[in-house]
């Protein structure tokens, strides 16, 4: 589904990704773990198309197309979804109105008919159940005054509405209590299928108790330095990131 080769990216003068390689196939869930500052969120932002980052080298192929060549909205229309670590609050825009615009722009791009008000509402009702989100929340201004848990549930709800191929979750577990974490993870598990794929960026192993990954990668200093299965996450939890750092630095020496 996505093939990232030798990806280098920087913000300003600071190089953050330094030759990252990753391939994700349909039906897979990949967890990206790593210490603070390793480049985890940068990877998520670069894939989604945040303009602050400049890709200096490497390629990203998404469903056979050059992802880096696409505008932010086109990436989303082609099936990339980023669940934000810090969802933006937008006063004056209700989730419902904004999502209707988004869903219909995406559908039009994919050659489908736009949804009318009735079918949109029907789809909404159905998807709301996935993350147990309330209608009244969705008619309020987008994320404004939402609790941390409500914001993250809203992200997963939007994911369900847009039905993407590749979902990138950027530290979705940060700031969530255990109940909210369960709801969010449960939502993700419901949406998992053999046709889509997930990249789950997280600092802690905790989320991976609920969303079981097929692969776990450790990102350190702008590169993936170690890959394994879910046991690697447990090992990291036990030993901390220092063991990876030591390992990498030992190789360098």
């Amino acid at each position: 589904m996505i093939k990232i080769v030798n990806l280098h990216a920087r913000i300003g003068d600071k190089e953050i990704l330094k030759g990252l390689n990753l391939t994700v196939k349909a039906g897979e869930v990949h967890a990206i773990m790593g210490p603070n500052g390793a480049g985890k969120s940068t990877l998520a932002s670069v894939l989604a198309g945040r303009e602050d980052y400049e890709v200096t080298e490497g390629s990203v192929e998404f469903e056979g197309k050059d992802l880096l060549d696409m505008a932010t909205d086109v990436r989303a229309k082609e099936g990339i979804f980023l669940a934000f670590q810090y969802p933006v609050e937008i006063p004056g825009v209700s989730t419902t109105n904004f999502l209707k615009t988004a869903v219909n722009e995406v559908r039009t791009h994919q050659g489908k008919d736009p949804l009318d008000a009735v079918s949109f509402l029907g789809t909404m009702k159905e998807k709301m159940k996935i993350v147990n989100i309330d209608q009244s929340l969705l008619s309020r201004s987008l994320n404004e005054g939402f609790s941390g848990g409500e914001k993250k549930r809203n992200e997963i709800f939007q994911m369900a509405m847009l039905d993407p191929k590749l979902c990138i979750l950027d530290e979705t577990d940060s700031g969530l209590d255990i109940d909210a974490l369960r709801i969010v993870a449960n939502g993700v598990n419901t949406l998992r299928s053999k046709n889509n794929a997930f990249i789950i960026v997280t600092h802690y192993q905790r989320l991976l108790d609920y969303i079981i990954p097929d692969f776990v990668h450790v990102l350190y200093n702008g590169q993936i330095v170690k890959s394994g299965t879910k046991e690697l996450a447990l090992e990291l939890e036990e030993k901390g990131y220092d063991f990876i750092k030591n390992e990498v630095n030992a190789v360098k020496l």
């Binding site: 989604a48 505008a71 909205d73 937008i90 988004a102 722009e105 995406v106």
Partner: peptide, 10 residues
């Protein structure tokens, strides 16, 4: 960026 990342044109 948030809106564009949801597929909404600039």
């Amino acid at each position: 960026f948030y809106l564009e990342a949801r597929g909404i044109s600039k």
